[in-house]
Design a protein around this nucleic acid. Structure first.
Lengths: 169, 169
DNA sequence: TTTTCCATGTAACTCGTTACATGATTTC
DNA sequence: GAAATCATGTAACGAGTTACATGGAAAA
């Protein structure tokens, strides 16, 4: 559902074909989403069947034929509804990657610390990567800012946890 | 995979049957995970096939028969491996519920603000609920603390965003 | 006496991923 | 000549959810 919102929003700004959409998302939104190519194509097909999109064949040079999608009035209506719902609602995030924290005491304290420091390294690297990304136009930046804020909070928390465990040791 | 870690970790502390496991998770870990009953049963079956668990029939009063699971040495080994990997790795979290932020500018500013305030309300409510939960023994508390920390960060960010939009308006 | 709780599951379905197929074209 | 890029898809699979089935016991 959010993936449909994502595609509709991009198509609202500009007509695009599947490959192009996927590429844009991969280049600019990796930190926030991970939409695979077959999924993208599939969603575009489904939305076309629903009358939200209108594809038209296009050619650029000798390149393979493209299907360029344009958003229809029905698509715009769907976008508006999805957007309003999405902005108004808080969808709880489950950090399945953190389940292990519940069993930290099953690890010898020094090892737990070593592993957490590993985690710290990769987290810090990702935050650095995201901070280096040049700013985007319009609201897209909010999404990236949010991700950065989240990673920052995650890092803070990890540091507190590590300090705490160090003190106990 | 994390769900397997979750179940193994609980069974390491105490032999339990499926219903009991699911109930414990629902009662104590709703904020961090959302494991449905059929999924739990299915995972227990799979792990039994792999030799990680050893079920034994049990009866309590006139209640329906239970399958009480005990973790095997192979299960303990799997738990150790999963735990180490889980603690050391940072799994990036995608906030699909926030995709809408990328298109905030598609909404009239006053309406965007109103919707965001709705979101703020439910977020604050969830944080309050979580803060009211009595503390748990052992490392389980880390998981809950993390969730609380995350919600707090989420709320901070929302407030900054709302302030920013108010200033512009 | 009806509802809720205990306890286990099955079947159908949705969503998404992985791996593969195709074929031209540009780059190395 | 080999590899990467452009562009679209299909097929098989896997994980997880929903809805349903069963049936006795306790609670309202």
């Amino acid at each position: 559902m959010e993936r449909e919102l994502l595609l509709l929003g991009l198509l609202r700004r500009e007509d695009m074909h599947g490959y192009q959409l996927h590429e844009f998302i991969e280049r600019n939104m990796t930190s926030c989403t991970d939409l695979k190519k077959p999924t993208a194509y599939h969603l575009l097909e489904k939305m076309t069947e629903r009358g939200w999109l209108q594809p038209s064949p296009a050619q650029a040079g000798n390149r393979p034929a493209r299907r360029v999608y344009r958003i229809t009035p029905a698509g715009e209506a769907a976008f508006q509804a999805l957007l309003r719902e999405n902005v108004a609602t808080h969808y709880p995030a489950y950090f399945t990657g953190n389940i292990g924290l519940a069993y930290l005491d099953a690890l010898p304290a020094p090892e737990a610390l070593a592993r957490l420091r590993e985690r710290h390294t990769s987290l810090a690297a990702e935050l650095a990567r995201l901070t280096a990304v040049p700013p985007h136009a319009g609201s897209l930046q909010w999404l990236i800012d949010h991700q950065r804020h989240h990673l920052r909070a995650e890092l803070d928390w990890l540091e507190t946890l590590i300090q705490h465990l160090t003190a106990v040791e």
